[in-house]
Design a protein around this nucleic acid. Structure first.
Length: 447
RNA sequence: GCGAUCGUAGCUCAGUUGGUUAGAGCGCCGGUUUGUGGUACCGGAGGUCGGGGGUUCAAGACCCCUCGAUCGCCCCA
């Protein structure tokens, strides 16, 4: 018989198992749970949008010339011949839904979501082909107060995750359309004048996306980039005033921020506020949360002109920064010492679980192994074989690291429970299960 | 798309200047011991040394190709 070759996982995807020392699944879960909790504090509605959309949704909103659209999308033709794309970001899909689902009636709309995104990129630290983001958007609010609330939300999230220490908020303004155009023209003029001093990459950027030269990592670009004009001189009065309101709002809320006049966004639709929370603890991927204002996007998708702000944060990146969440052991472990007790063990476990007690059971292994595993998994370990030797009782053992095991007896009501009645009351003293009392309701227990 | 580093058991890794039947720890399965027990001892299963080709009397080791992983460039969360 030919050997079956196991298909390999797709490059850039990951499998996460809980209960391992790395605890990556737990970190991931912790990030999402914290986000969901904080998002409620700010009154952001949970929103669900499809994982795939018509290709046009992303092509139009991100801009045809961007890297994401031109080479990173998972695009395919479905069986009906339509061009479909796995979402590479959230904002475009949410904006589409805002238009097609009539969500304008709820404006200004505050929504939050999280889930998988897909980008055909070369994987590296903190970067995957299927990755996951948290996302928050305020749609239909042109006021700087919306930017502020979103940033305060982000700041609190990072604080609650305990990772605010190594992470700083860097902030910039890209101005309104008029400011941006004037600045852009000035930048192009500046870079053209120094064309010969630029790296090859930046010469290419000059044609495609000149703003990007500003945050180039290539040391050859730095002198020219650093001497390039800031946007400040080109800001319209409105744009300047908007930015001032955002920064003073942050100051009022006590959110620390740094101006980074070199911060630009890769996607075409950004206006006014642009920001990134960055860290130096993730190798080359410094951005942990990023976003800004995208007043032109919804119009690009065929909707009415609608102002909006939003941000997204990489769940994997946050998970890498977060402390390992404390492991929560199961409450009770049941060890049958001999095979005859297996069935009893399952019945008892069922009983405990019905009453909301998390219960660990073993399926195999010799006695010592069962104890080892049970003690590792549960707070209190119960030996039920005493039931055979002395009906009406079983022994319970409690293990704590570095402590000598102690023994506790349980009272006779256990026998009654196991004989036929379900409803019980479990009594704890000092975290130790001491008593189980019947409450009366009669039901047969399979025996 | 480009560059660098790395692929030996389920996991973490040894394996000398090329030299017999490729090892350890952990994990898994079993036995003995213990018998309020997380132990100790013994044993077992598990490897086409990522794959293919080459050099050599001889390759896990050297050379070429290929696949994969990691990190970086580009870009991004």
């Amino acid at each position: 018989m030919a050997k079956i070759e196991t298909p390999r996982p797709v490059r850039g995807t990951q499998d996460m198992l809980g209960g391992t020392p790395e605890a990556f699944a737990e970190r991931f879960e912790h990030v999402v749970a914290t986000f969901d909790r904080v998002r409620r504090l700010y009154g952001f509605q949970r929103v669900e949008v499809p994982v795939f959309e018509s290709t046009a949704v992303f092509a139009r909103s991100l801009g045809e010339s961007t890297d994401v659209v031109s080479k990173e999308m998972y695009t395919f033709e479905d069986r009906g011949g339509d061009s479909i794309t796995l979402r590479p970001e959230f904002t475009a899909g949410i904006s589409r839904a805002y238009i097609t689902e009539g969500w304008q009636q709820y404006a200004p709309l505050k929504v939050a979501t999280h889930g998988p995104l897909f980008r055909y990129e070369r994987p590296q630290k903190g970067r995957f082909r299927q990755f996951h983001q948290l996302d928050a958007e305020i749609i239909g609010a042109a006021e700087p107060g919306a930017d502020v609330e979103l940033l305060v939300f982000a700041d609190q999230l990072l604080k609650e995750l305990g990772i605010n220490e190594g992470v700083t908020l860097t902030l910039n303004t890209l101005g309104d359309a008029a400011s941006r155009e004037a600045w852009r023209a000035a930048l192009i003029a500046h870079f053209e004048a120094h064309r010969g001093e630029l790296s090859e990459d930046s010469v290419e950027r000059l044609a495609k996306n000149p703003l990007r030269i500003l945050d180039s990592k290539d040391p050859r670009d730095r002198p020219v980039a650093d001497s390039a004009p800031d946007i400040d001189a080109y800001l319209t009065d409105e744009a300047r005033s908007f930015f001032e309101k955002v920064t003073s709002g942050l100051d009022a809320a006590g959110v620390a921020w740094e101006r980074n006049a070199r911060l630009v966004r890769g996607l075409d639709y950004y206006r006014h506020t642009a920001f990134e929370f960055v860290t130096d603890r993730l190798g080359a991927q410094g951005t942990v949360l990023g976003g800004g204002r995208y007043d032109g996007l919804i119009e690009n998708l065929g909707g009415k002109p609608t102002p909006a702000v939003g941000w997204a944060a990489g769940i994997e990146r946050l998970a890498m920064l977060v402390d390992t969440p404390e492991r929560v052991p199961l409450q009770i472990g049941i060890v049958p010492e001999n095979p005859d007790s297996e069935f009893l063990s399952q019945s008892l476990a069922y009983l405990f679980r019905q009453h909301g007690l998390s219960t660990f059971t073993t399926f195999s292994g010799k006695k010592d192994k069962r104890y080892t595993r049970s003690c590792a998994a549960a707070e209190l370990v119960v030996n039920i074989d005493a039931l055979h030797q002395k009906p009406g009782t079983f022994a319970s053992l409690r293990f704590k690291a570095g402590q000598h095991p102690r023994t506790f007896g349980l009272d006779k009501s256990v026998e009654n429970i196991l004989r036929g009645r379900f409803k019980v009351d479990l009594e704890y003293v000092d975290d130790v299960l001491l008593n189980i009392d019947l409450l009366g309701e009669e039901r047969r227990v399979p025996r």
